[in-house]
């Protein structure tokens, strides 16, 4: 049955559908509806909702529940996401699966409460200390907020690592129709490694991140790197729109991709061969999407220029990569992106 839902509510409903046992959160705009929905609906579905004393505690509660072998989620925005980074590093270091939702707002610092995409670096390049990665999914609709949540839980369990949904204040707050009953299948994975009480096991399970022997720590990090490479081979995902003959390609993720799509359509009306590449996985970055030759690519973001660095790495100097961004809670509009496409087509974009 189709129902109108906020993106934040869709995430929460899909997490319950995915069998989440616990949600640990802390209020911060613009993601608070996730907590509110969970507070109301998770207990009636046999789960645990707990408002923690801080985002630090919330992510460490996630560590406990994940370590015990249960599906668990937390969400936050802005400064709250920064506070969670310590725990995210530990989750990655202990190879624990969980889902973390970032409904991005403007920063740095307290910044603002309007939508933004300025946490790309934090999500994709690390955020916490040490060598680690998260799988990062970027939804662009309320439907995808729900679908990607299910996918995130499946991927987290499959690869034994934290998965982040990198959303923004618009996707979190806007309402769209979503078929909450028609979500992807929930996959089930055994967790023989969980610290759930030894029971009849011969050896005890230890969830830890400390390796005082540098050779052992290096081995752990490198084996994780191998896993990341495998993920990059298997899971690069993106959507293309009018790309077959496109000379000027706009690339954008999340809500910005929807604005860019409208700009691409208008460019086509004006006879410019424009197309759109929308990265869906931000880590692994869809490098394969940029294999075809183009005249130029324009990266549009709600930031001062973050994903554009990965686009440049993917393009590797084969053709020009331009950037257009608004930030601090401002949105690039259709007209602005269209203007970039036109300038790029004329060779005037720098």
């Amino acid at each position: 049955m189709k129902q109108m839902m906020k993106g934040n509510e869709a995430v929460a409903a899909a997490a319950i559908y995915s069998g989440v046992k616990c949600f640990f959160g802390y209020p911060i705009t613009p993601q608070t509806e996730i907590s509110a929905y969970m507070a109301k609906h998770l207990p009636e579905n046999g789960g645990v909702f707990l408002q923690a004393e801080s985002e630090i505690s919330a992510i460490n509660m996630v560590y406990g529940a994940a370590g015990a072998g249960f599906r668990v989620m937390t969400s936050s925005s802005g400064p709250g996401m920064s506070l969670k980074q310590e725990g995210i590093s530990f989750l990655a270091g202990a190879d624990l699966p969980c889902v973390i939702v970032n409904v991005m707002r403007g920063g740095p610092g307290l910044g603002g409460i309007q939508p933004s995409q300025a946490d790309y670096f934090q999500a994709v390049k690390g955020g916490g200390h040490g060598d680690y990665r998260l799988i990062v999914l970027a939804p662009a609709s309320v439907r995808e907020m729900a679908e990607f949540t299910v996918r995130a839980f499946n991927l987290a369990d499959k690869w034994r690592m934290p998965v982040m949904i990198l959303s923004d204040g618009i996707l979190g707050q806007m309402m769209e129709a979503v078929e909450i009953d028609e979500l992807p299948a929930v996959e089930h994975y055994e967790k023989p490694w969980a610290a759930s009480g030894r029971g009849e096991r011969k050896e005890h399970n230890i969830i830890k991140t400390l390796y005082l022997d540098p050779e052992e720590l290096e081995r752990m990090v490198f084996s994780r790197e191998e896993r990341y490479k495998e993920i990059a081979r298997e899971h690069q995902d993106w959507e293309e729109y009018l790309c077959d003959d496109a000379e000027i390609v706009v690339t954008a993720y999340g809500i910005t991709a929807r604005i860019a799509r409208a700009a691409v359509e208008r460019a086509r009306e004006k006879g410019i061969k424009a197309g759109l590449i929308r990265p869906i996985t931000l880590y692994p970055f869809p490098v394969k999407a940029f294999e075809n030759e183009r005249r130029a690519v324009i990266c549009a973001e709600m930031s001062a220029g973050q994903m554009v660095e990965d686009v440049r790495l993917a393009v590797n100097g084969r053709y020009p990569v331009y950037f257009y961004g608004r930030t601090g809670g401002m949105l690039p509009d259709e007209e602005e992106i269209l203007n970039c496409i036109e300038r790029a087509a004329k060779g005037e974009m720098v």
């Binding site: 505690s57 460490n60 509660m61 406990g64 759930s196 009480g197 005890h204 230890i206 969830i207």
Partner: peptide, 26 residues
């Protein structure tokens, strides 16, 4: 010899909360 989780500095009660809320019989 029991199962053990190593917590981040200062976070043991939060980690224990996460465990216990999932496994109230332990």
């Amino acid at each position: 010899k029991c199962d053990v989780l190593e917590a981040a500095h200062g976070r043991a009660p939060a980690v224990a909360t996460g465990v216990k809320r999932c496994l109230p019989d332990r």
